[in-house]
Amino acid sequence: MNSAQSQSLNVLLQEIEGIQLTHQNQRRLRADISADALPALLALLRGRAGYVHLSAISCVDWIEDDQFELVYHLWSYETSILISAHIRVARDPGIYLSVFDIYTPAAFFERDIHEMFGLYFEGSPDMSKFILTEWDGPPPMRKDFDSEQWVMDNFTWQDYHPDWLKQIEQQGGGVVKSADSSRKSS
């Protein structure tokens, strides 16, 4: 990558309205844009900047802001700069546009995100179950899903009762419920 390429990329990206660019280092560029502008950005990158590769789409649940963050990781073999495009989508109703028409592999990523976060992608070819075929609970990677609680409600544990424990119980001892339950309260 040379500085000319980098500069022309910058100029090109300015065509998108409201884009915020942060050069994290020489080979990483972060672009924060509004959700509406993302398809235009991707089309621009794919069509005019040689960004043929969508490496991944990742999702972050910002439950306090009531938003999902979607990060599109894009790679160009010409510029060797990794661009990550960040958008925020409202958690409720949790619907966004598919970019399948621009990048075909997006279908898998979107299907995965739909399964794990419950975010629906309109226009994606297949939103059916992907990996969690046996799962009918809430999307498990949402922050409001309490995995430990779910496990406690749905599974049983070994109920060990070895001889040494029986002996101790006979003497009046036994398993202490939780670490802090043994603390004295005033």
Partner: peptide
């Protein structure tokens, strides 16, 4: 790890 109360051992808060 579970803590087990064992009577007969020293207990001095």
């Amino acid at each position: 790890i579970t803590m087990v109360e064992i009577p007969g051992l020293k207990n001095d808060p």
